[in-house]
Computed example of a mutant assay.
Amino acid sequence: MTFRMPPEWAPHERTWMAWPGPNPTFTDDEELAGARAAWASVARAVRRFEPVTTVHGPGQGDIARELLGPDVDLVERELDDAWMRDIGPTFVTDGQGGLAAVDWVFNGWGAQDWARWEHDSKIAHHVADLAGVPVLGSTLVNEGGAIHVDGEGTVLLTDTVQLGAGRNPGWTREQVEAEIHAKLGTTKAIWLPHGLTGDYGRYGTQGHVDIVAAFARPGTVVVHSQRDPAHPDHARSQLYAEILRDQTDAEGRRLEVVEIPAPTVLKDEEGDWVDYSYINHYLCNGGVVLCAFDDPHDELAAGIFRRLFPERTVTPVDARTIFASGGGIHCITQQQPRI
């Protein structure tokens, strides 16, 4: 039986999220409160379009219910962190009404010294059980934010994630591709050499593709475009666009590349380069939940997404707090396809 990962724009049964609890990512009560408010804003935005289930840790249910409201489903499981895109399963379908959940090996984004994953490494199994679907195990260390598919055989990957020494030492590019294709039903991988500069900071993922590039439909990919030469991502984003324009997808189509201008802000309050990106959006049933940054380019990006998805409602949600913790809106959501 062959399974494949549907594209994000295919219909969803629901969205899965995880609730922020005390951990090294949120260093004090104020940061934790801010994270909870930000996660709740995303959950409520997604809930306008489809059901949302949020997994929370023991003793976290009351505050989750208070901030999420009555329309978000809650379940309790042990958690380490709150990035459901990465710790949750990747759902795949067999085209005949069957659904399964790929359980990648999760090791704290390359066994980073601040990360804990004793419980998060089991969340994919828990979510699969809650969804009532079988688990497809994998020996590849991988996360949901490190892949993006077009639903027609093409997958985006990055060298510093799947081939990184902290994740899959000893694996060749061919071995990684074989495992990815076997689990996702893809046939062609397009590799980018690395991620955005800020993604290699303290809480970075070391190069997730879902902040760099994403399919908007078969044959069309949106890519982060840093227009300011003062930012090191200026050269990187030019490289990504060049690589993608030179590529064809699994169906042989030359890719159409839509460059999304980065926000105007270049550094955070600590003076570090930001990796603020509109690419890290989430498609849900009838909607686009788009990262916003209280930035002059927010409306520019929203306009581009409205043109790309004229049948969907674009909802900007302030993502600065989420980015400060190491990710964005796409990173904290995970779709379960409708079958």
Rank of each mutant, 00 (worst) to 15 (best):
H181L: 06
A230Q: 14
W117E: 09
F309P: 12
Q335E: 08
A182C: 05
A213L: 11
A230M: 05
A40T: 03
F49D: 01
A165Q: 15
M17V: 02
V149I: 06
A38R: 06
E299N: 11
F91K: 03
H231M: 02
P310D: 11
A250H: 03
A146T: 04
G98K: 15
P229V: 04
P229I: 11
V46I: 09
L184T: 07
R217D: 07
H181K: 13
R307V: 10
F3S: 09
F3M: 06
Y203H: 13
A38H: 08
H231G: 08
V222H: 13
R254L: 00
N107W: 04
D103I: 01
H181Y: 08
G185D: 10
V133Y: 10
H56R: 04
V55S: 00
E311Y: 14
G108K: 09
P169G: 14
D210S: 08
A82V: 02
D120G: 07
E76G: 05
E259F: 01
R44Y: 00
W19M: 10
G88I: 12
Q206D: 15
R217S: 15
E174S: 10
P20A: 04
R173D: 06
V127Q: 11
G166P: 04
R36F: 00
H330V: 13
Q238P: 00
E269F: 01
A301V: 11
V135C: 03
V265M: 00
P218E: 08
